[in-house]
């Protein structure tokens, strides 16, 4: 995680970050951990719910990071939160940035609201990334490098 959060707040959430923080960052991080735990509990029975919970976890992590920078977020859009997270965790790979954005939009399937085409592996990746962002935010470090996604299987 970047040491100085303020430039990312000013760049991506200029009207949404209110300086003067009432909620300590640990409270946000605890909330993020709780959402993540719930996501893991329901992923087998309700993967789409787990997907949304994983985004809630990332969103709370972002709020915690903003609190580290002395700000609280108000009225922020999901897209801006994604930009903010990608700015703060600038060591993320493009694929990881894509996963954060996908989590924010809630599209967990490969068709429009068609649950038949849901891919569990993407959901697993998003949960793993949410955990990684939370750990990095808590320790004030950059997330550990991503595992390399294997090439598609040959026919």
């Amino acid at each position: 995680m970047k040491k100085n959060i303020t430039p990312c707040l000013e760049q991506h959430l200029p009207d949404k970050a209110k300086f003067g923080n009432a909620v300590p960052e640990e409270a946000w991080f605890d909330a993020a951990a709780a959402h993540l735990k719930s996501a893991r509990l329901v992923i087998d029975s309700d993967p789409s719910g787990a997907f949304m919970l994983a985004w809630s976890s990332m969103h709370n992590t972002a709020k915690g990071v903003a609190a580290v920078g002395g700000a609280r977020l108000e009225g922020e859009t999901h897209g801006k939160v994604v930009d903010f997270l990608c700015c703060v965790f600038d060591g993320l790979t493009n694929t990881e940035k894509g996963l954060v954005r996908r989590a924010s939009t809630g599209r967990n399937s490969l068709s429009y609201d068609d649950p038949r085409l849901f891919d569990r592996r993407v959901c697993d990746d998003i949960l793993a990334l949410a955990a990684k962002l939370l750990a990095a935010a808590r320790s004030g470090t950059q997330p550990k490098p991503a595992r390399k996604i294997p090439p598609p299987p040959s026919a």
Binding site: C86, G98, L99, R101, R102, L117
Partner: peptide, 24 residues
């Protein structure tokens, strides 16, 4: 393979800063 297509699109999403959404 859905995951292989999604992986390419996720990579481009991160590169572009907007979601690249595949429908197969």
């Amino acid at each position: 393979d859905d995951y292989a297509v999604t992986s390419v699109c996720l990579d481009l999403s991160g590169q572009y800063g907007v979601e690249v959404s595949p429908m197969i």
